[in-house]
Amino acid sequence: MPSPSNKRRKPARSTRAQSSGNVVRWPGLERDKPDRRTLKHAVSLTSYESKQVRWVWEGRIPLGKITIIDGDPNMGKSVIANADLASRVTTGSAMPDGGDGLGEPRSVVLVVAEDDIGDTVRPRLEAAGADLDYMFTMPVQRNDAGQVIPLTIPDDLERLREVIEEVDAALVVIDPITAFLSESINSHNDASVRRALSPLKEVAEETGAAVLLVRHLNKSGDAKAIYRGGGSIAFSGAARSALVVERLPSDPEWSALAQVKGNLSRKSLTIKYRVVSAGPEGKVAAIEWGETCELSADDLLSKPDARKNAPARTEAKAFLMDVLADGPLLVAVVQKHATAAGISWTTVKRASTELGVVKETSRKATGKRQIEGWVWSLPKGLKSATEN
């Protein structure tokens, strides 16, 4: 029997990293590639085909994805979506910036709530030169009482899918999106909005149609463009491209379409437009496109909020700083002085909030310590209007 000292010993495994060219390998960490044929829980990315993004309007409206366009009322966003862009898709025409578009006529499905198809939507399409043989909408459904059953999202997305597939639509416009949300969907709640838009996203991906949602802006005039759309930020989160329309601050005759976000390409240039009269007797709205410009969406929307900078509010602030300069006053006394000065009490209350006026209760010097009323005073560190 050989002596233990004569046994061949395995060389000790090195714990030092070994370098081979630019690759550093640690002994014992080498692993074989997983065999995707035997996977039970994971899905290999090799099973997915690598594809390029295709566009209705390159850089702005991708096929098979959700795009959203925000804007205030009377800015022409519906004329852009339901008439101008829809018409270009039905004729295979170039896009407003001269891009190729789809290059062939394709179908469009309109799901609209605020504009009548007969007296508003169709005349606009005709004025824009649409091929109406490629324009479609959802069939009207009625209950036993003859009442219209509106399309709701996400409940009725199978109905929408059937229409898209039947006409092989390249573009679907839902205007406005909030009018078609199910009653169970809270448009201001992120999780609720995602429950509605995730299935819509799947419809877009599986049919290959671009889904363009139209939405109104909220009242937050001092917020960044990405937060200006009405309702939850989840609307913009679900969209691969987000657009906004707003009047040009330097030339009120013209407005502009700007890109707020673009996940699939670099941001596109802002393009000018204006709403003009067209059609018989010039009674139909149409879009006239202008040149591109360097203004961003934030530039367009960063206008002073008139509600916060109104002259009346400024006057009310000065009044409060004067009347409270000598110390706290009962609200009833402040209101009496405001009436004498001809300043609206509503404006005074709003100005007091912006100034940070301290509002406390005052009690009578009696045994029961009864409340005498509310007292206002200037916050510490705020000088009166007459002080330098």
Score class of each variant (00 low, 15 high):
284 V>Y: 03
388 N>Y: 10
276 V>W: 03
299 D>L: 07
299 D>T: 05
265 S>G: 11
198 S>D: 15
268 S>P: 03
292 T>Y: 02
175 D>Y: 11
191 A>I: 12
12 A>E: 12
110 L>N: 07
378 L>G: 01
242 A>T: 15
183 E>D: 13
45 L>D: 06
5 S>R: 14
288 E>C: 02
280 P>C: 01
203 V>P: 02
334 V>K: 07
253 E>F: 05
2 P>N: 12
180 F>T: 01
337 H>L: 14
80 I>Y: 07
313 R>F: 09
6 N>R: 15
198 S>N: 12
364 K>Q: 09
177 I>C: 01
334 V>T: 05
291 E>W: 01
134 Y>Q: 06
128 A>P: 04
10 K>Y: 07
132 L>N: 08
268 S>Q: 14
338 A>R: 02
111 V>L: 02
8 R>L: 10
52 Q>N: 15
111 V>M: 03
317 K>S: 06
191 A>K: 10
216 H>F: 02
200 L>N: 00
74 N>I: 10
225 A>F: 09
49 E>S: 11
220 S>K: 12
324 L>R: 14
63 L>Q: 10
19 S>M: 11
156 D>L: 05
112 V>P: 00
266 R>S: 10
93 S>Y: 03
186 N>C: 07
13 R>M: 08
368 K>N: 12
322 D>K: 13
63 L>M: 11
250 S>P: 03
379 P>N: 05
164 I>C: 01
356 G>Y: 09
120 T>C: 03
373 G>Y: 12
248 L>R: 15
224 K>N: 05
1 M>L: 10
290 G>K: 12
241 S>C: 15
111 V>S: 00
266 R>Y: 06
146 G>H: 06
340 A>V: 13
41 H>M: 07
350 R>C: 03
39 L>H: 04
71 G>L: 08
42 A>V: 15
18 Q>L: 15
238 A>T: 15
66 I>P: 05
128 A>Y: 01
215 R>D: 11
267 K>W: 01
55 W>H: 06
163 V>C: 04
127 A>F: 03
276 V>M: 02
56 V>R: 06
287 I>A: 00
264 L>A: 07
186 N>G: 01
16 R>H: 07
215 R>H: 15
242 A>R: 13
234 A>Q: 13
169 A>Q: 03
381 G>K: 08
172 V>K: 02
42 A>M: 14
191 A>T: 14
264 L>P: 04
197 L>P: 06
71 G>Y: 06
102 L>S: 06
137 T>N: 11
64 G>N: 09
109 V>K: 01
239 A>W: 13
204 A>L: 08
20 S>Q: 11
78 S>W: 10
277 S>H: 09
207 T>C: 05
361 T>V: 07
320 L>R: 01
